[in-house]
Design a protein around this nucleic acid. Structure first.
Lengths: 159, 159, 159, 159
DNA sequence: TTTT
DNA sequence: TTTT
């Protein structure tokens, strides 16, 4: 069945990069996508859409995007559920990105929250590319994400 | 910003049609969209995606689709939140359909749950069309939906 | 950069299956997609959109779809040019399908132009699946497509 | 039937704005959309996709976008044909934009080809908005587009 | 819990 | 709470 989503918006926060027990990278981020029309009160609203991306593009996202970055997402709608710590079933709808597009150069006026000295003119970099840009070597270390507890499982892998 | 979703799937139940206090029609339904790949256990899963549609297409949806109907949706991702009866903030992600496509004739083998005697070959009817098909006249009666409590407000209208 | 197309329509003819010199399958077909609105004269028109699909899905398309079949396409817009036999540069815009969705059972009332005796209830078969359905074994024979001259090159492969 | 396209790319030239005999604005432009993968020779190619947009968004496009501007398009695939001056039938496939997204501030480094002194931070302006930005008043003058011959007809209007 |  |  067809299931396709395309979004362009700005990250509400820096992306979160984590690793499954098997060392597969996953990044989560939220896109604020402004609506093209105003509501009854006359102001523009936005949708805050949760996105997930796996593997190499996850690492590219974590390396290139920060709070405020303009990004495009091409993916699909996914629903899943889990039982929270109160024993309640929680239903989640999120976008699984097949690819993420970086629509601004790194460190443009919109994402000065990272302080890398190495600016780069992007103009359409695709997160699906392989790259030798990551300096942290965290690729080989599932716990490199500063020891944050990992609650995602390899079963969540989209394929 | 861009926000576009296209889905093709089957209704998990008959759609629910309601009216705002101002008499604007809204229909809700869930599409089961089968994934194109299998999970680690080797079985095909589906995403169960909540959809909303407003005004005339809402009534067309309620008249044409039933549990099991194959339908296409062209719309956008919307997020909103409300406080539930336990005083907790609930976050909702759903698809607001601009148009809904009926991909099967009415009363095909997949939607025999309605028992109208009036079969019709569809093959691509678009819910955006006006139509004189509704017999209930509920268009003029916001309470025609058998007295079900209406908890949606006109503020939820997408435009 | 983002480039995404989703279509649902009916094949205007049986698909054409061919093979590159290296034996890679390609299928071409045209989808008639009815417009959701009428023109000034009050009649509904359609767009006739040329589609290409490669590899295994190409063979599935050739096996499952015939003139009149309802199908969904998820792909991208591609432009290319070639010099025709009059030495003129011709520009082509077409859709390269990543996946093709079969939205009707084989041999439904809309695609009786093939005369296979083996009907099958489909209801959402995805062309990306591998399958053991092809009986012709043409997979190993680049000229199996009844000796038709092959004018596509392996350079046209999308990846 | 479903027909949806989403593109993000850069204009290959300044857009062309024209008016039908009835004074309806139309803008044409071509988007260069880089492919996310390299070809056999290892270089990245692009698709050059012709787009049309009507009415108010046409004027916004003409006012905001220039050669090199990064833009997003949400629209549909359209095919049409006409007889050229050699009496030959020409088939055209193009994207009819429902909305065009401006993904860069006006006069950013990528579209310095216009020399307006009035820079403006955009960050996601939607061409569908009404605006009081046009100074030329060409809205009321179908020949304001410097006398260029108009070969489009009101019959080409999408609705 | 939200971006420009 | 899920469809074929």
């Amino acid at each position: 069945m067809l299931n396709r989503v395309v979004l362009v918006g700005r990250l509400t926060k820096d992306p979160e990069l984590r690793y499954t027990p098997n060392g597969v990278a996953v990044a989560n981020f939220t896109l604020a996508v402004n609506r093209p029309f105003s509501n009854q009160q006359g102001d523009r609203e936005a949708d805050f859409i949760n996105c997930v991306v796996w593997r190499k593009p996850a690492e590219n996202v974590a390396n290139f995007l920060t709070k405020g970055s303009l990004a495009g997402v091409d993916g699909r709608v996914q629903t899943r559920s889990y039982d929270n710590n109160e024993g309640r079933r929680v239903y989640v709808t999120e976008i699984v990105a097949d690819s993420v597009q970086f629509l601004e150069p790194r460190n443009s006026q919109n994402n000065q929250s990272n302080n890398s000295s190495n600016s780069q003119a992007a103009g359409g970099y695709d997160s699906n590319q392989n790259s030798n840009r990551q300096q942290g070597g965290y690729n080989d270390d599932p716990f490199a994400n500063d020891g944050k507890p990992i609650d995602i499982s390899d079963d969540d892998l989209p394929f």
